[in-house]
Design a protein around this nucleic acid. Structure first.
Length: 278
DNA sequence: ATGTCCCAGTCTCTGGGA
């Protein structure tokens, strides 16, 4: 069974590349993030022609997550119980308030589905912007809601995967130059503590093989030739419980998908599992 | 590092977000 997670940075803009990648890579289950697409606008028919069922959760312009599966989609959950609502715009200056309406409902950052006997979560953590911002506090609150949701599901011990764009580099090894990130989000102790609390629930970080270069980065900024200089970050994570980890045969970063014309700024992480021993 | 890409609305440019 082949699973993958990929922040596509707009499923509409990436559709030709997504379809080509699905045909070439043939994953059984794909978790997508930053689809930037309302659920009813998701190109389900196009991926359906390749044999995939879709479960999508989207609110339009930003965010958006989905699960594609050719081994079934059941028990779809959109959002997290108790997930926070970002109120930052209300605290900003009056001009911002005029142009950016205060959110009244949660953002589309989590969707869960059961696919081929595995409970799968596609996750897109808030960016956090700067550590002194309201958005950073929102990010930490979102992780707290995620922890509660996963704790409830993990208590059964059934196979579970929580993968996606966590917008946190777990260690200094997971950024190209730790000195550059001093004072920035993605590396703060509180964010890393949020990841540690998830692992304390019984989740394990399935670290992929980089394929090229010393580190398995999954994201490289579009600007300044960052990809070609391998100045990246590992922020797309594949967290799995014991029932999944003991079946992991291999895992890799598909950096080929970051090359060429019109790529996402993230590369997919692909994980192959042995057949469930039963 | 701040060199690009994507989105929607103000719509062949701008501002916001990452």
């Amino acid at each position: 069974m082949r699973l993958a997670t990929w922040n596509v940075n707009s499923v509409k803009a990436r559709l030709p590349r997504l379809l080509g990648w699905l045909e070439e890579t043939r994953p059984d289950v794909v978790c997508l993030q930053e689809t930037k697409c309302r659920a009813d606008m998701f190109p389900a028919a196009e991926v359906g022609e390749l044999g995939y069922e879709t479960a999508a959760h989207g609110d339009g312009r930003w965010n958006g997550v989905a699960v594609l599966s050719r081994v079934g989609v059941a028990d779809v959950t959109r959002g997290l119980p108790g997930e926070p609502v970002y109120q930052g715009a209300a605290e900003d200056d009056p001009q911002t308030r005029l142009t950016e309406p205060v959110l009244t409902r949660p953002e589309a950052r989590a969707i869960g589905a059961t696919c081929g006997g595995v409970r799968v979560w596609s996750l897109y953590a808030p960016n956090g912007r700067t550590p002194d911002s309201a958005h950073y506090l929102y990010k930490l609150e979102w992780f707290a809601a995620l922890r509660e949701a996963l704790a409830a599901e993990l208590s059964e011990g059934a196979p579970l995967v929580a993968c996606g764009d966590y917008n946190v580099a777990p260690t200094d090894e997971d950024v190209w130059d730790p000195a550059v990130f001093t004072g920035s989000t993605h590396v703060t102790p509180a964010e890393r503590r949020a990841l540690a609390e998830l692992r304390a629930l019984g989740l394990h970080d399935v670290i992929p093989t980089p394929m090229k270069g010393p580190r398995p980065y999954t994201y490289w900024d579009y600007r300044a030739g960052m990809f070609h200089k391998d100045m990246g970050m590992r922020i797309d994570l594949f967290y799995a419980n014991d029932a999944v980890v003991r079946r992991v045969r291999s895992a890799y970063v598909d950096r080929e998908a970051r090359k060429g014309k019109g790529p996402s700024d993230h590369a997919p992480v692909v994980v192959d599992l042995d057949t469930d021993p039963g």
